[in-house]
Amino acid sequence: MTGLDRKENFIRAVLLLTAFSAVSVLAVITVFIFAEGTPIMFRRGVGGFLFGLNWYPGEGRFGLLPMIVGSLEVTLGALLIGVPFALACAVVLTEFSSPRLRNILKPVIELLAGIPSVVYGFIGVVVLVPFIRETFGGPGFSVLAASIVLGIMILPTVISISIDALQALPPSYREGALAMGATRWQTVRMVLLPSARSGIVASIILGMGRAVGETMAVIMIAGNAAAVPRTPLDPVRTLTSNIALEMSYASGEHREALFATGVILFVIIMVLNTLANASSSRRARGKRG
């Protein structure tokens, strides 16, 4: 074995090690969050955490149901508001717009994916919350406000991944449908959207992950009351806000309960990731096969 070979093998080994960095980080995060969060869940009963309605950390009552429902409601709201607009944009940009306009609009939309979430939250506070308070009544800090802001925040994610999915379709699909006399819209509705379905579904799931995981914007506009909201105008607290609001002063069991909140959030996100992954890999396999 020459010196060069030894060097090559050494480099290969080092690279293999770095290649496992992401997986190891993921593993370490999982271990730490679960190690900190699950003991209290088992000590006090998982049911109490998942279905308890009362969150009074001072009295040792840690019911997370209001926050779980809260997270689901604002996420659902965000999808209802954001997804139609996002899909409209994706269809317009890939099928109806001139290439020149697309080349301007797509970067503009992607540019806005980088706007920090605190800025979105702030706009929510100074523009949207007063508007809701004056138009619909209530405190303004509400499920509705959070859903609208999250709906806007998921736009760039859903738009750019859906555009990729639509553009990845073989041109023959489009040409075939048009050649048979279908209008552009019929082509979109009957051929392109159904064929790009798995990519679009993946984009929606990833947008959902972003909405579930968003923290700072939601804290600023959702009102944060730890109770199940009865109307869309009621304040709401999400899992993420629950952690961020109380982490700075929590200790002992209270802190453990916040990590338990993290565990639930983590599980939801991993389920969504796996679904998105399954959906987009089905697409990849379908294309190759």
């Binding site: 993921l26 995060i29 969050i33 990833l206 995981g213 916040l258 996100i269 969504l272």
Partner: peptide, 11 residues
């Protein structure tokens, strides 16, 4: 890892 919310990284 890309999908994990920032608050979990914070925790």
């Amino acid at each position: 890892l890309a999908g994990i919310p920032s608050i979990i990284f914070g925790l």
